[in-house]
Amino acid sequence: MTMLEPWMMLVVSLVIFGVGLFGLLVRKNLLVMLMCVELMLNGVNLSFVAFSKIHNSLDGHLAVLFVMTVAAAESAVGLGLVIALFRTLKTVDSDQIQILRD
């Protein structure tokens, strides 16, 4: 049986980041797009902790705390924007949000 190595966590974090980025590009629903941003941030967090395990450092853990704060602020502001957009346009589809175009 193979042992658990920190680089395996890096592979998982890379996959989660890629899936989140792909979802952010192809989905049009603003709520799901925000969820994909959360997925990407989580992938990065996992790589922070894995690298800090590899290098025997504590900085990765601290970076994760700050990323979590930024993620909480980002999702609060983002969801506030989604609510404001839905109130004026009655949609959360990013293809139909084009009031700056006309």
Partner: peptide, 21 residues
């Protein structure tokens, strides 16, 4: 927060946005 906003916006029905791109 996410589930609360989904409830607030009544977005609990399927959306076909993946197929539309």
């Amino acid at each position: 927060l996410f589930v609360f906003v989904i409830m607030l916006l009544n977005q609990d029905r399927p959306v076909e946005d993946f197929k539309s791109s």
